[in-house]
């Protein structure tokens, strides 16, 4: 019998998606264990966002499966989504709602009891420095404030798997630090964080394992040391993640 902890947080098998006959994701396989901080790197148009949107149930795959904690996102979408939160790179919020009203709505979608949701919302808003803005409509928020509110929405149901697409875009240094600390803290509590980023330094410092994606397929995967070793074997000792990334994406382009 499989123990709950041995079920991968995310398991992708042969996932594929085409747009206009061109493969955006090409039979992609990926397995991320529970409690891991995983970074998905790749050049523009590599298929990162398409992959994540299929995993989140926002896009229907042409082929393959994606399972979140054992729940197939296509066959058991409700069970899969219950344990998942997805934060897109440019989250769309309700301009005419106030932050607490937004969080109340998100909590309602995930069927979180008000007694749990209300204090959690306050805690998140205070922690993300949005508590002083609770009387304002979201339409007046800066991009960074919107990003933080969307993150609060993603965390209100305390998801076991958190998927973030470029989560630090638009955040100032202080807010970016807050978000990074929060993500690390979640992983320390046994939750899984999967993110895409263009900022290689973030993946280098935070991620336990990194997948490099290009042309809709994983071209390399491993810890930073494993990727460095891979790069060294191809002629570059002491390489940074940037060197590894550039080398790998150049050689497989």
């Amino acid at each position: 019998m499989t123990s709950p902890d041995s079920i991968p947080a995310l398991e992708i098998d042969g996932l594929a998606k085409q747009f206009g006959g061109k493969p955006a994701v090409d039979r992609l396989d990926l397995r991320i264990p529970q409690g891991e901080f995983h970074a998905l790197l790749g050049p523009n148009g590599a298929g990162k966002t398409t992959t994540l949107r299929m995993v989140a149930g926002l896009l229907k795959p042409d082929a393959g499966t994606a399972r979140i904690l054992g729940h197939d996102i296509t066959r058991e979408p409700i069970a899969a989504k219950r344990v998942l939160a997805f934060l897109p790179d440019d989250p769309l919020l309700y301009g005419k709602l106030r932050p607490l009203e937004y969080l109340e709505f998100v909590a309602g979608l995930w069927a979180i009891e008000p007694a749990t949701a209300a204090p959690r919302a306050e805690e998140l808003l205070r922690w993300l420095d949005l508590w002083n803005h609770t009387g304002e409509l979201v339409e007046g928020f800066s991009r960074g404030m919107r990003q933080k509110l969307a993150l609060a929405g993603a965390l209100i149901h305390d998801p076991q798997v958190l998927i973030l697409d470029e989560p630090l875009t638009g955040l100032d240094a202080g807010a970016a630090r807050q978000v990074k600390d929060l993500l690390v803290e979640r992983v320390a509590r046994g939750h899984t964080v999967i993110l895409t980023t263009h900022i290689l330094e973030i993946a280098e410092r935070l991620a336990q394992r990194i997948s490099i994606i290009q042309g809709g397929r994983i071209i390399a995967q491993g810890s930073l040391d494993e990727l460095r070793a891979h790069a060294a074997s191809h002629g570059g000792p002491g390489a940074t993640l940037e060197d590894v990334f550039l080398q790998l994406t150049a050689t497989t382009a």
């Binding site: 989140a56 069970a79 919020l93």
Partner: peptide
């Protein structure tokens, strides 16, 4: 306004 939020809701 937020179709992605609803799309990912259980």
């Amino acid at each position: 306004d937020a179709p992605e939020l609803l799309g990912t809701a259980p």
